[in-house]
Design a binder for these strands. Structure first.
Length: 298
DNA sequence: CGTCTTTGACCTGCGC
DNA sequence: GCGCAGGTCAAAGACG
């Protein structure tokens, strides 16, 4: 990555060994790169500037609205059965242990290519099956990964899903620890890592691994509902099999209640967009995913 | 009381 | 074989 050309506030995505695409907040475009925009258009997305929030909030800085005719129909795609499909096209996994700026830019964003066995750029295999439960020599199945860097003052970015922290480790050559989270849905194996860049402490590197096989928590809770939630839900709803650079975008509904609230509210600049997203009737069998136990019991 | 975070211990793979 | 680093487990405590 070229730091000299790096926008002041931006986000980079990666699902391979390279980071791609910076999006500036103040120019109204997230995917302001022709090549990347064309990729998105291949997915049938109609790119329109949609959301603008500064990095003080810890939210995604910029989104695009897609398929304007989907308004009001998000959260519940017509083809619901595909939500849990496993048609992710595996691609090279992200290796964030090293210098992301030295990654290989030749990794294509095309999702039409199926690549063989996944491994990190360093060749290190990462455990998927719990170490203690894995037999020696047992094949490790790697989930596709998707990572992005976002300028943010808070570590926990809103992504619409509820996460449980299960570990934290210090990172070599970095003063900032790396946190490990798992999706709180018992049936969902998605994990994410959150760490700050040692080179630029204002940058949060979030790596998702796996696919959510459920809907995000999308009901407004305590008035905390974001337009990002609406948008991201729309993304997964409109194209549940959408994988950016090989993996489904890890996007979902409103922020989780336990997403480090102390951190969030300690940020004086933190502000919540109050425009509500349309509430849609819960679907059978997905109540667990969409309505937390506490809410249902009240 | 259920859920979540914290944190030290443990496991595994890799490089030397 | 050893040390290191990344990743995970699980007990304890905090929180609402």
């Amino acid at each position: 990555m070229d730091n000299a050309k790096k926008p002041e506030q931006n986000t980079y995505f990666s699902s391979g060994s390279s980071w791609k695409l910076g999006g500036q907040m103040d120019d109204g475009y997230f995917f302001n790169n022709d090549q990347e925009s064309s990729i998105l258009r291949e997915f049938g997305w109609d790119l329109q500037p949609e959301i603008d929030r500064n990095y003080e909030t810890g939210s995604f800085p910029k989104f695009y609205r897609i398929d304007s005719d989907l308004e009001g129909s998000f959260l519940f795609p017509k083809n619901r059965s595909s939500q849990c499909s496993s048609q992710a096209i595996p691609i090279e996994s992200v290796d964030l242990s090293g210098d992301v700026s030295t990654s290989n830019p030749s990794v294509s964003s095309s999702s039409s290519e199926e690549l063989p066995e996944q491994s990190t750029a360093s060749g290190r295999k990462l455990p998927e099956i719990p170490n203690k439960g894995r037999k020696k020599g047992q094949e490790q199945v790697r989930q596709p990964r998707f990572a992005f860097m976002t300028k943010s003052k808070v570590d926990q970015l809103e992504d619409g899903y509820r996460w449980r922290k299960y570990g934290q480790k210090t990172v070599k050559n970095s003063p900032f620890p790396r946190s490990y989270y798992r999706c709180t849905n018992s049936k969902c194996t998605v994990k994410k890592r959150v760490e700050r860049s040692s080179e630029d402490p204002t940058i949060v590197i979030t790596t998702y691994e796996g696919q959510h096989c459920h809907y995000s928590v999308c009901f407004p809770r305590g008035g905390v509902t974001t337009r990002e939630a609406a948008f991201t839900s729309r993304l997964t709803a409109s194209n549940p099999q959408l994988y950016f650079s090989g993996m489904q975008l890890p996007l979902g509904g409103s922020m989780s209640v336990r997403q480090s609230p102390r951190v969030l509210y300690e940020e004086e600049q933190y502000q919540v967009l109050t425009e509500p997203i349309p509430q849609l009737p819960p679907d059978e069998g997905l109540l667990d995913d969409m309505v937390p136990t506490r809410m249902r019991s009240r």
